[in-house]
Write a protein that binds this DNA or RNA. Sequence first.
DNA 1: GCCCCGAATTATAACGTTTCAATTCATCAG
DNA 2: CTGATGAATTGAAACGTTATAATTCGGGGC
Lengths: 371, 371
Amino acid sequence: MQARRGTGIETFAKRCKMTPDAIQGRTSRMTRDIGTDHTHGGAEKPTLRTVAQATGFSVATVSRALADDPRIAARTRAIVAEAAKRLGYIPDRAARRLRTGRTQVITLLLNTEHEFLGFTHEFLSGITERLRGTGYSVTVVPDDPGEDRLTPVRTILRNNLADGLLFTRTECFDPRVRMLMEAGLPFVSHGRTEFTMPHPYVDFDNEAFARQAVARLVEQGRDRLSMILPDDKFTFCQHLRYGFVSAAREAGVAHEVLEGVTLDSDREEISCALNACLRRPERPNGFVCVGEVTALMTMAAMTDAGLTPGIEADIVAKRASPIFDNIRPRIETVYEDLRATGRAMAEMLLRRIDGEPAEGLHVLFEPGRCG
Amino acid sequence: MQARRGTGIETFAKRCKMTPDAIQGRTSRMTRDIGTDHTHGGAEKPTLRTVAQATGFSVATVSRALADDPRIAARTRAIVAEAAKRLGYIPDRAARRLRTGRTQVITLLLNTEHEFLGFTHEFLSGITERLRGTGYSVTVVPDDPGEDRLTPVRTILRNNLADGLLFTRTECFDPRVRMLMEAGLPFVSHGRTEFTMPHPYVDFDNEAFARQAVARLVEQGRDRLSMILPDDKFTFCQHLRYGFVSAAREAGVAHEVLEGVTLDSDREEISCALNACLRRPERPNGFVCVGEVTALMTMAAMTDAGLTPGIEADIVAKRASPIFDNIRPRIETVYEDLRATGRAMAEMLLRRIDGEPAEGLHVLFEPGRCG
DNA sequence: GCCCCGAATTATAACGTTTCAATTCATCAG
DNA sequence: CTGATGAATTGAAACGTTATAATTCGGGGC
């Protein structure tokens, strides 16, 4: 693979003689070059032009060479790569974005109400971890409760603000999923939907968690189980409910889902429901809790009712934070690794952006007992 | 203020006749226009050109008009604004960024190790809350423990990735502050420094918190106080230490700072230190805790040693999450409102970006007792 | 020797914006 | 009537990139 036209240096020499047919545009550009050369010596931000001038190749060639385009001679690519590195060239994101339409940004829709403790931190850390080194950056867009969930998505689509989207708290027929599929913007949801067309998702096997929790409580001789469930509109709640109810039914134990409570956030309501249920003569002796706050509320309600967790009733809880190592009495917990979830979602999104089909792209994390 | 040159419509009519001196560039542009008109009827992204054609003004005028430039006639501005709205024009961020160098992005340096529970969520929610409606978006860049803290800052500066920076866990002579001041990039730190040159910051009055905590414990008759302090390299830890030590000294009670522990994250170490200290004959009877995890660890260590929080020793803790409402026995807590902190930091950063001098820009949140 | 192929490179336009430096034109002073 | 004034507008360049359509030129086939 010998360069036919001669090396960059030769080409440069030739160019310096200035070809006869100097077109207007070219002239003006050359004029400007001289102007640029006049400026102070050191700190100009290196651009493609800088590298082009240093190597003697044209801007176009340099651009292609840096993209490892096979149409550029291997030797040229090497020379350009070396020069770019030496000069500290870094492609300008704005220019590239303007030209290509790709933003090099992925956006996370962040619920701004109460979180499952530690969720946001771990999740975001996982995402940034995976994105490190790729040119992508994460932007966070609020998914405010009470606001239409589609508005941020619409804004992102209209203004072309991201190459891909991540979001949580997925609903069974999540309108965001529908809109994104129609628009063709890559995305990964935390949680499944019930649309027939497949889309990428990462989920925790909440059904399995609920089943395990029931099994564990039954093992410990508990036979009146209760579960506090967030709003049913989220898919994961339906999985929890299904796992809980069917496992309890199979085990032949009494069970109930505490109704009338919505999300982890409506603390007052949950407290009332808990207190009421603990005062019933046939009160539950086993609780399945979905988040740490719910679990702590259950413990507090028991304590306030003069009962001791582990004696009159057992609790199994899902957790995403480390606090349960320090809660006394100890209760059994299952850890959902949200850092790994964030990593996996970012990974999938990158693949999807790279054009991989949606079909195979999903992960279901199995619960591993801990604590 | 009458338009001298005639309304947009007249100008448009005139332009359609095509002036004699049609320069090359113009011709080619017109050609392209026709090509564009040929395409399918509806969904072209509206750009300045679209608005210009619709109103009959030039792109330059439209651009100025939308920026409310006083050199553009008031009537023209109104016409253009109306048309832009009607057509759904939204300025292209990439183009604007390329042209102006401003990114419309602010970046949050996010520590990716363990958080004070709920910190990230609340903080980010506050930031996005303030930024809503302004054109700014937030990107999150990891500040990985063990990595050089300057690397992300350097990257942001070199690649011009943001118009401003927010970060936490500020050190007394934080190298990031120095670098950013030198580079002239607006930023707001969560926490103060000891540099002589002023810079914008938002902080919680940790010294006051520590003093209040000591006072509260002394009120309750406690006279051997202990505090677990994260790494001294952070400014806020020094404030905590100073407040704790001087208040205890003034009250004339015994006190110690548990040494040898670094951050909230080194749980094993903290546990050991706690257990050891609780087994001493002259063990502390009052604890000041900075985070919920530390507080819970203290409670757990007491329980494990056969002691009951509130009986043999009291605990006062700072918290950023709602969990302490549900911890039994109840302990006294002081709430640091991180949502408000995020809001305030975003607010200041916006002002700073707008050119406001750094001098007056700081807020110190006073602790309010709660729970 | 001529023509054409194709490998290697290059000129140029374009992405959508902002802004400098004109240009236009009514008005007013002289 | 002329020239200066200044308000209103505009042409064109520029930001740094990529993609399309040339251009160059050695070599192989005839």
